[in-house]
């Protein structure tokens, strides 16, 4: 590989998601004039908010080389609890608080299992995924629940002229971004992800950091659940299924490593979430066979992961074993 090609290829790969994103946008834009309308783009942002928020929590977990498979179940249980409460006459704020409480409780449970009891994150959260889903199905007795309009109103509410869901998502992302880049907690997470033993030896309270991460992920999942509810207005028995995968995909598309220590929420995860959503949104606009959506989404995620792994490999390849600089020619 000659140096000129390196210089061209690397930036391209470095911004793989961005490139892919642009390609998807241009593609849909060309295929349908409706895609690039303000209304649709706003709609796109509203739809992506939930994934972005859940993805932010997931990014924190992935940064520590963990994983949280329970987020979809958290969304479901939280929504089911909120639904039960509102249908029983509880006011909206109480329902919202209950949702957040569910997120924190499941997050704390995950943290207990992973951190205190030493269960692998993958297995622990797979367990809570099933427990949560079973619990939610029991709560709803596997029937869909229609929620009062107050929830849907949340989805269409405006803050300073902007729709509430993206504003809320933006606040979450901004807080998360500052946390990751500007606070001791954030920087320490990267160290834990790079080497847990090393972080411990460096004097960090690794246990406390990990607990915080799983609780945060549960919290974000619950918040994402609220945003989804605000769009759907109903809790079906499949509410939140496979959302753990979309969240992981959003984070990984955004450049966060599954092996910990590398990545971030902005622009990373946000971009990933919007990319996933725009694929679905574009397919809807094109009136594509709905059965094709998962196929296209899977292909796009695959492509993004492929680009990312190619990039890391080339970077490692070019970066290493260069023990002296060649004389300038």
């Amino acid at each position: 590989m000659n140096p000129t090609r390196q210089r061209l290829l690397l930036p391209l790969l470095n911004h793989a998601t961005l490139v892919l994103f642009a390609a998807v946008l241009v593609g849909f834009g060309l295929l349908s004039p409706k895609f690039f309308t303000a209304a649709n783009l706003a709609n796109l942002l509203v739809q992506a908010s939930s994934t972005a928020v859940v993805g932010v929590g997931m990014t924190f977990v992935l940064l520590t080389a963990g994983v949280d498979l329970s987020v979809g179940s958290v969304m479901f249980v939280a929504a089911a609890v909120a639904g039960k409460l509102t249908l029983a006459g509880a006011p909206l704020p109480v329902a919202l608080l209950a949702i957040v409480a569910v997120g924190l409780v499941v997050g704390a449970l995950n943290a207990l299992l992973v951190v205190r009891l030493g269960v692998l994150a993958f297995i622990a959260t797979l367990g809570t995924l099933y427990i949560g889903r079973g619990f939610g199905l029991w709560l709803t007795q596997t029937r869909a629940m229609n929620l009062p309009d107050s929830f849907l109103a949340l989805g269409t509410a405006k803050v300073a002229g902007l729709p509430l869901p993206p504003v809320l998502a933006a606040v979450v992302v901004a807080l998360a971004h500052v946390t990751l880049t500007r606070t001791p907690f954030g920087r320490q997470l990267y160290a834990v992800g790079a080497s847990r033993e090393g972080a411990k030896k460096a004097g960090l309270n690794v246990g406390r950091l990990l607990v915080a991460v799983y609780v945060l992920s549960g919290f974000c999942a619950a918040l994402g659940g609220i945003l989804s509810l605000a769009q759907l207005g109903a809790v079906s028995p499949t509410f939140g299924t496979n959302r753990e995968f979309t969240a992981i995909a959003a984070a990984v598309l955004g450049g966060t490593s599954l092996f910990g220590g590398r990545g971030g929420v902005f622009p990373g995860t946000v971009l990933g979430a919007i990319l996933i959503q725009s694929v679905e949104n574009g397919l809807v606009i094109l009136n594509a066979d709905p059965y094709l959506y998962p196929l296209v989404t899977a292909a796009i995620i695959f492509l993004a992961v492929l680009l990312d792994s190619t990039r890391s490999r080339l970077q490692a390849h070019w970066g290493r074993r260069r023990i002296f600089d060649e004389p300038a020619e």
Binding site: V178, R182, T183, P184, F185, R187, Q188, Y190, A191, A194, S195, G198, A199, K201, A202, G203, L204, G261, R262
Partner: peptide, 25 residues
């Protein structure tokens, strides 16, 4: 060696006790 290659020199030095103001470094 117990260092974190993706973090910078300053962060590696003060990882366990960053100087802070409020929550920020």
């Amino acid at each position: 060696l117990n260092l974190f290659p993706d973090l910078d020199l300053a962060e590696n030095l003060f990882l366990a006790d960053f100087p802070t103001r409020g929550p920020l470094i």
